[in-house]
Amino acid sequence: MKISMTVNGKPVSAEVETRTLLVTLIRENLRLTGTHVGCDTGQCGACTIHMNGQAVKSCNLLALQAEGADILTIEGLAKADGTLHPMQEAFREHHGLQCGFCTPGMVMSAVDLVKNHPNPSEETIRAELDGNLCRCTGYHNIVKAVKAASAKM
C-alpha cells in the first residue's frame, strides 16, 4: 500500500505491506538508521521518535497508522547547520551516552519529557524515562543531562 507523511520536514511516500512497522519504514524504506530497534516487546524505547509532536515508540505502530503524520526522527533534531539541539548538547556535555545505541530514543524521549515537565526534578526525570532502557550509563549522567538541558530549552 502507498503511504505518505512528512518526515523531518520533508514530504515522503513509500510502498509498504500492511504489516510493516513504522520503525521498519523509517529504517529500511527511508534509510534513516538513527532510529534503532532494541527489543520486540515495546520495552526498550530505542525506537522512540516524535509523531505529531509527541514521543512514540515507532516499533509499536504500523506504518499505515502514520499516514499523513508529521514525523521527527533523531536525524531531524539538530539544526540544518549541524548545531545540536540543547538536549543533544547536554548529553554530550554530561557524558549521557556510551555505546550510543539507546541514545537516539533516549534523546527523543527526553525532549518530550522536558516539554511536558518544564524544569523537572530528578525524581520526575527518572520516572518519565521509565520507558527507555540504557545498559551502559547507569542513567546517572542521562539524568544530569536532562536536568541541564531543561534549563536551556
Partner: peptide, 22 residues
C-alpha cells in the same frame, strides 16, 4: 575530562551499527 569525539555521530543518528549496513 575531554568530551567524547564519538558523541556527535551517535547524537545525530549517524552511528553505523551492523544492522545499519545494507
Amino acid at each position: 575530562s575531554v568530551k567524547r569525539k564519538e558523541d556527535y555521530r551517535f547524537l545525530t543518528g549517524a552511528g553505523n551499527y551492523t544492522d545499519d549496513v545494507t
